[in-house]
């Protein structure tokens, strides 16, 4: 047992402690310096008159007041119609996207197609994902015209990029046991997919589709900005007319519709990935 060296309270006469050497943190220091420099350079070089920033909060509050103090509900009918247009674009884009991406994600997954095809598809997916959907819409609109169809096709192309990637990752992530079992029983590749892969990957796929639909709902409203129709189109117009109370109403519509769709889709996704609730299994 240790002998105590009780120090009388109040005195500072304590034995000197041997402190360990402080570890050098050059890595953290370098990272801090690099980030700081990049941020400072960006702030310093960007073309913004920072003096304006002082009046900005006041301005924004004023506009928020104009928009939301008394939203103008006169145009609600047309707003809902245009919202339906946007949601349609999102739906069609998602459906076309999933129909195309489903076979492609199998071809891009290890074990279902030759390596070169895999590489090409994966490159294609990542190229598509790098390009914003609005640019895809601009690129194809000279062929498809300024119609909601253009919007839907742009969303479909973009959906192929994300759904394809998530898809092959999910396929490669399934337990190989059932696949081997089907192969061992003499199953062909389609049979392997149907009985070895699909039962495992199906919940993931359905949940990816729903999630991509949520993304497409948001994206469809911005496609209106280039004139393909939908709520974004209407919002740009009224912003340009500076009819703020109508803009406020339109933003509220976007928020409510998007949040409702997210809520429904999110609930479905949870249901699918977690399975039915116990109470329901009891019945």
């Amino acid at each position: 047992m240790t002998t105590l060296t009780p120090t009388p309270p109040g005195t500072r006469a304590r034995p000197a402690l041997v402190l360990p050497a402080k570890p050098s943190s050059w890595r953290r220091l370098t990272a801090t310096i690099v980030v700081t420099v990049i941020v400072i350079v960006a702030f310093w070089s960007v073309d913004i008159t920072w003096a304006r920033l002082g009046s900005l909060p006041g301005e924004i509050v004023r506009y928020l007041w104009l928009m939301f103090a008394a939203p103008n509900w006169d145009k609600i009918g047309e707003a809902l119609l245009q919202t339906w247009r946007s949601v349609e674009m999102a739906w069609v884009g998602t459906v076309i996207g999933l129909v195309i991406s489903l076979p492609l994600s199998f071809l891009a997954a290890r074990g279902f197609a030759p390596a070169p095809a895999r590489g090409v598809l994966r490159l294609l997916f990542s190229v598509i994902r790098a390009v914003p959907e609005i640019i895809i819409a601009i690129a194809i609109l000279s062929v498809t015209g300024l119609t909601p169809l253009t919007g839907a096709l742009a969303l479909a192309v973009n959906s192929v990029g994300t759904l394809g990637k998530w898809g092959y990752e999910a396929i490669e992530g399934v337990d190989p046991g059932p696949i081997e079992a089907v192969r061992a029983a003499g199953g062909s590749t389609p049979e392997v997919i149907r009985w070895g892969v699909w039962p495992q990957a199906m919940p993931d796929f359905v949940s990816f589709w729903l999630y991509r639909f949520e993304i497409n709902v948001r994206a469809s409203s911005i496609l209106g900005l280039i004139g393909v129709g939908g709520i974004g189109d209407m919002l740009t117009s009224y912003t340009q007319y500076r009819e703020w109370s109508t803009v406020g109403m339109l933003l509220l519509v976007v928020v409510v519709v998007t949040m409702s769709i997210d809520a429904v889709s999110g609930a479905l996704r949870r249901r699918i990935t977690e399975g039915a609730s116990v109470r329901e299994l009891d019945r």
Partner: peptide, 14 residues
């Protein structure tokens, strides 16, 4: 530490 270190905290006042 049983043999090496010493208790340097003052005993709890009360």
């Amino acid at each position: 530490h049983d043999s090496a270190a010493a208790w340097v905290h003052p005993p709890a006042a009360a």
